[in-house]
Amino acid sequence: MPTQTQPPRQTIHIPKLPSQKPSPPWHTHLTIDLLSTVLRRSLFHPGFAWMIPLSLRAVTVPYEFLSMRLSIAYASLLTLLYILSYFNERVAFGTAREMDWEEEVVVITGGAGGLGALVAGFYGRRGVRVAVLDVKGVDEGEEEDDGDVKYYRCDVGDAEQVEACARQIREDLGIPTILINNAAIINAKSILNLRPEEVEKTFRVNLLSHFHTIQTFLPGMLEEQRGTIVTVASVLGHIGCANLADYTASKAGLLAMHASLRAELHNSQHPGAPNIKTVLVSPGQLDTPLFAGMQTPSNFLAPVVQPVELAKEIVRMVDSGSSGEVMMPLYARWIPLHGVLPVGVQKVIRGWSRADEAMLSLTRKKGL
Results as ranks from 00 to 15, higher is better:
residue 41 R to V: 06
residue 231 T to R: 00
residue 187 N to M: 07
residue 223 E to T: 04
residue 183 A to T: 08
residue 3 T to W: 06
residue 92 A to Y: 02
residue 355 A to T: 09
residue 182 N to V: 14
residue 266 H to Q: 15
residue 195 R to Q: 13
residue 131 A to G: 15
residue 282 S to K: 03
residue 132 V to H: 04
residue 221 M to R: 02
residue 249 A to S: 15
residue 233 A to P: 00
residue 364 R to M: 08
residue 141 G to Y: 11
residue 116 G to V: 12
residue 78 L to I: 04
residue 65 F to L: 09
residue 193 N to L: 08
residue 334 W to A: 09
residue 75 A to M: 07
residue 230 V to N: 01
residue 72 I to E: 04
residue 366 K to I: 09
residue 309 E to L: 02
residue 113 G to H: 07
residue 88 N to F: 13
residue 270 H to M: 06
residue 173 L to D: 03
residue 3 T to N: 04
residue 228 T to W: 02
residue 313 E to I: 01
residue 350 R to V: 00
residue 46 P to E: 08
residue 169 I to L: 11
residue 196 P to C: 04
residue 275 N to G: 03
residue 60 T to D: 15
residue 210 H to S: 09
residue 156 V to S: 02
residue 179 L to I: 05
residue 138 V to E: 06
residue 122 F to C: 12
residue 94 G to I: 01
residue 332 A to H: 00
residue 109 T to C: 04
residue 100 D to R: 13
residue 183 A to G: 09
residue 255 L to Q: 06
residue 162 V to N: 07
residue 73 A to G: 06
residue 134 D to F: 12
residue 157 G to M: 05
residue 78 L to W: 02
residue 338 H to Q: 05
residue 255 L to C: 06
residue 18 P to N: 15
residue 289 P to S: 05
residue 352 W to L: 07
residue 274 P to C: 06
residue 309 E to D: 14
residue 79 T to Y: 09
residue 141 G to C: 08
residue 332 A to I: 11
residue 39 L to R: 13
residue 37 T to G: 11
residue 167 R to Q: 13
residue 351 G to P: 01
residue 298 S to C: 05
residue 107 V to Q: 01
residue 295 Q to V: 05
residue 252 A to P: 10
residue 68 M to F: 08
residue 288 T to E: 02
residue 229 I to Q: 00
residue 127 G to F: 04
residue 41 R to S: 07
residue 46 P to F: 08
residue 168 Q to M: 08
residue 19 S to T: 15
residue 39 L to Y: 03
residue 78 L to S: 15
residue 67 S to W: 10
residue 38 V to F: 15
residue 46 P to A: 09
residue 330 L to A: 06
residue 209 S to W: 05
residue 137 G to T: 12
residue 109 T to S: 09
residue 148 D to H: 14
residue 127 G to H: 10
residue 189 K to Q: 11
residue 30 L to I: 10
residue 290 L to R: 11
residue 20 Q to F: 11
residue 51 M to E: 12
residue 288 T to H: 01
residue 215 Q to P: 07
residue 367 G to K: 04
residue 149 V to M: 04
residue 127 G to W: 09
residue 47 G to R: 10
residue 242 A to W: 00
residue 234 S to G: 05
residue 123 Y to L: 05
residue 337 L to D: 15
residue 334 W to I: 10
residue 352 W to P: 00
residue 289 P to D: 11
residue 110 G to W: 02
residue 140 E to Q: 07
residue 343 V to D: 12
residue 358 A to L: 12
residue 122 F to H: 12
residue 230 V to L: 03
residue 273 A to Y: 00
residue 108 I to N: 00
residue 339 G to S: 15
residue 288 T to A: 02
residue 43 L to F: 15
residue 321 G to S: 11
residue 37 T to F: 08
residue 76 S to G: 13
residue 177 T to I: 06
residue 362 L to D: 11
residue 246 D to N: 05
residue 117 A to G: 12
residue 216 T to I: 14
residue 280 L to P: 04
residue 31 T to R: 03
residue 173 L to A: 03
residue 61 V to R: 00
residue 173 L to Y: 02
residue 86 Y to G: 09
residue 337 L to C: 04
residue 194 L to F: 10
residue 218 L to A: 00
residue 165 C to G: 01
residue 249 A to V: 13
residue 211 F to T: 08
